[in-house]
């Protein structure tokens, strides 16, 4: 059972959405490999002490998003094809939202476009040092 899943029941984000996000993120960064088996609904529900219907809902939506496939009697698995692409897309969307929130906050406290540009360049320089300019 991958210990990479955690949920915060006290968060305002519905638990099934937290799970979906974590599975997609794990796939995108390679912590969950193609074809890897996910815990059963019951096992994950007990492990995290959350409602089994909530886990089942997350799995249903992951299946609809073509991240996992479920075969009756065998369990749920990360899809061999396509899981990576749709997960990467989901994670970039999360990053875009975070960036958007940061810009909105900065704008609200009066930072200008030039200020933000400078901040952004600084951050980029830290994350992408000159050597690996790719």
């Amino acid at each position: 059972m991958p210990a990479i899943f955690t949920v915060d029941p006290r968060s305002g984000v519905p638990i099934y959405l937290q799970l979906i996000e974590q599975v997609k993120r794990s796939v995108a960064i390679g912590a969950l490999a193609d074809g890897e088996q996910l815990p059963t609904v019951k096992a994950l529900a007990l492990d995290l002490t959350i409602n089994p219907n909530t886990v089942a809902r997350a799995y249903r939506e992951l299946e609809r998003d073509q991240v996992i496939e479920t075969s009756p009697g065998r369990g749920s698995f990360i899809r061999a094809n396509g899981a990576g692409a749709s997960s990467k897309q989901a994670v970039s969307a999360m990053a875009a939202t975070s960036l958007d929130n940061a810009i909105r906050e900065a704008k609200a406290v009066g930072l200008t476009r030039t200020d933000l540009n400078a901040l952004f360049e600084d951050a980029l320089a830290r994350w992408f040092p000159k050597k690996e300019n790719a």
Binding site: V41, K42, A45, L46, T49, P52, N53
Partner: peptide
Amino acid sequence: QRAVLNLLVDAAA
């Protein structure tokens, strides 16, 4: 408390 909540989860499953 956690054990009891897990009993509820188990029952629901």
